[in-house]
Simulated scan of single mutants.
Amino acid sequence: MNTLGKRALIKMIGLSAVSMAVLTACGKKEEAPAAPAAAPAAAAPAADKLKVGFMYVSPIGDGGWTFQHELGRKAIQEKFGDKIETSMVESVPESADAERVMRDMIGQGNKLVFATSFGYQDFVQKVAADSQGVKFEHATGYKTADNAAVYDTKTFEGAYLAGIVAGAMTKTKTVGVVASVPIPEVVRNINSFVLGAQSVDPSIKAKVVWVNEWFAPPKESEAANSLINGGVDVMYQNTNSPAVLKTAEERGARAFGKDGDMS
């Protein structure tokens, strides 16, 4: 028998064996073996919560900048529920204390840190360089890193509009500003306010008193009184408390709040 004939014979024998096996199995009427029970699905590992820390330069009850950040912190906690865990530390000076607080936040497992004041800038850069697994958001600064970004709002636009209102309201043709800390953001807001007022009347003059702090109600009130005594009847403030507005109300002058509804 040649090779082709042998292959054909082997193929026929194999097919016959398969057919007999199928017929035998059908004739026995045996039940098919039960499928093995599926192993219980392993529980998905619970995702770790994102821990977010907020560092504030003034008390959360300041009525302005920090109060608005605190509202934001509460809003994201409510929005994301048990997916995140937020915490805050208030009244942190723009000094080495800021570095200590941020390092403590990182030690507690925070992977995102909001440093909410300009003066924290160099401390953010220092801590960020040592903490590559943590992200930093710094308010109003200009220095960044691979894990550190900056954020701000266009407050100068609102300051310009406030200036237009002040220019239309002043009787003495003298407007004033109670200014906090001489940084670019604050200088920009002062310029915008004054330009807004002078867009109504170019002869309007402006006076500025610096308190050199973000939150210092007694100094803010003193500055407001000084401006009013100097002929100012409409004021803008770039400080964190409503002290300027309270003083204006007591003295019969007008003033604009800052960052929050200070009415």
Results as ranks from 00 to 15, higher is better:
Y56V: 12
A47M: 12
M55R: 00
D48G: 09
P33Q: 13
P45S: 11
A35M: 10
A25N: 09
K51C: 02
T24A: 15
G63M: 09
M20G: 03
S58G: 15
G14D: 03
A44T: 02
A34S: 06
G63F: 08
E31H: 13
A47T: 08
L15A: 12
E30L: 05
L15C: 01
G64W: 04
V22P: 01
A38H: 00
A21D: 01
S16T: 08
D62Y: 05
H69C: 14
F67A: 15
K74N: 11
G27A: 14
V18S: 01
A37W: 01
P40N: 00
P59R: 09
K49P: 00
W65R: 07
G27I: 14
K29D: 14
F54Y: 13
L50M: 14
E70W: 07
A47R: 13
E70Q: 11
Q68S: 15
Y56Q: 14
K28I: 14
M20T: 11
T66G: 11
I13S: 08
M20P: 01
G64T: 10
A41Q: 07
A39M: 06
F67V: 05
G53Y: 06
A34Q: 10
M55I: 14
K29Y: 11
P45A: 13
G72R: 10
M55K: 04
V18L: 08
R73L: 12
